[in-house]
């Protein structure tokens, strides 16, 4: 971040000497590589230790069982790259399920109307948070904390009990299996994840919006002076996160057809953990959508490993292991940053 720390003379000689061989090895991909490697290692450990672990089914289940994490984490990645944070994801997802449950089951409105509507509601909450962050300079932590209270509160006010979705549409979607190879299958949710991830990658790397997101995370003041649409982008980033949270709520209902005001309690922390393990810097400015995908996969693999252990391991270890992973990855980030600065120096 601090450009001034880089001694000048040495850089000029290093810099003007044309393309140095070091450029082949781009250090910004290192964290991403570490994340992917970690996933492969963990999956490998599982495969060696447990019979039946190494299979497409187990791999696909990682997606099938955590669709909401994937989708919310993608939205969160955008927010974190701008240097912000979104604590409202879990409760917005819960609110989505409650609104859907009420409208579909109690008022008998068709899901074809309700689902677009709830996605709009989620986006609107994100949009309002974005307005507060950008126009009124309220710290993202506080603004999204307010959003979290608001969404959860409304969900609880709608109904304190869960609503079972008996509508045939949700039953059909949640039971629909798309066969892949052998007896492995994927669900509609997995297709949604794929679409969201691809859209996010294109958005992040091949559009002006995406690049502005990175620029804001790098140096917001510069981004303004470079004439980039900072305000619009920031508001849009929170809107996207709101949309993704609502979509995560929808996938929850596709996974388990019910609306529950207590869905996704504490989910925001899992999502943030996945993003960090995926190699995105919480300071903003760097990170990859693909990294986030692997971040969620790693969290899923840990849970699966503990499940395979059966009763012999206390499930509370999952949290401790997750925390340890976050720690390791943050220390790696710091280490790489220092290395990077040294490379820049010499």
């Amino acid at each position: 971040m601090n450009i001034k720390n880089i001694p000048i003379l040495s850089c000029i000689t290093g810099g003007k000497g044309g393309n140095s061989s070091g450029s082949m090895f781009n250090f910004k991909y290192l964290l991403l590589a570490a994340t992917i490697a970690l996933f492969i290692i963990m999956f490998g450990i599982g495969s060696v230790s447990f019979r039946g672990f190494f299979s497409l089914k187990v791999f696909f289940d990682l997606f099938i069982d955590n669709p909401f994490l994937f989708i919310a984490a993608i939205g969160m990645t955008f927010v974190i790259i701008t240097g912000g944070i979104d604590l409202s994801v879990g409760s917005v997802a819960a609110l989505t399920t409650m609104i859907t449950g009420t409208l579909v089951e109690i008022h008998g409105i068709s899901p074809a109307v309700v689902l677009p509507f709830v996605l709009l509601v989620g986006s609107l909450i994100g949009f309002l948070i974005g307005i507060m962050v950008h126009f009124f300079k309220i710290q993202p932590f506080i603004a999204t904390l307010g959003g979290m209270f608001l969404a959860r509160g409304i969900a609880l006010m709608i109904n304190t009990d869960s609503i079972t979705l008996n509508n045939s549409f949700f039953k059909a979607v949640s039971n629909y299996h798309i066969p892949v190879i052998g007896n492995a299958f994927i669900t509609i949710n997995v297709v949604i994840i794929l679409i969201v991830v691809i859209a996010a990658i294109i958005l992040a790397h091949y559009t002006n919006f995406g690049r502005t997101v990175y620029a804001i995370g790098g140096n917001e003041q510069s981004a303004i002076l470079m004439g980039l649409p900072v305000g619009r982008t920031k508001i849009l980033v929170y809107t996207i996160s709101g949309f993704c949270s609502a979509l995560a709520g929808v996938t929850m209902m596709f996974y388990m057809p019910s609306g529950n005001p207590l869905h996704g309690v504490g989910m925001e922390m899992d999502v943030i953990a996945a993003v960090v393990i995926g190699g995105t810097m919480l300071t903003g400015g760097s990170g990859y959508m693909l990294g986030t995908v692997f971040g969620v996969l790693i969290l899923g693999t840990i849970a699966t490993l503990i499940n395979f252990q059966g009763g012999s391991v206390n499930p509370w270890w999952i949290r401790i292991i997750n925390a340890a992973l976050i720690l390791v990855f943050c220390l790696l980030q710091i280490l790489f940053e220092k290395k990077g600065r040294k490379i820049a120096k010499s």
């Binding site: 620029a215 790098g218 510069s222 002076l225 470079m226």
Partner: peptide, 23 residues
């Protein structure tokens, strides 16, 4: 304008810093 403290984004590539906003 080119400012005293270079107002570009350190986390983007050189090329991107030149073109961002009108890629």
């Amino acid at each position: 304008t080119v400012y005293q403290e270079v107002n570009l984004c350190p986390n983007l590539s050189v090329a991107e810093n030149i073109f961002i906003g009108r890629e």
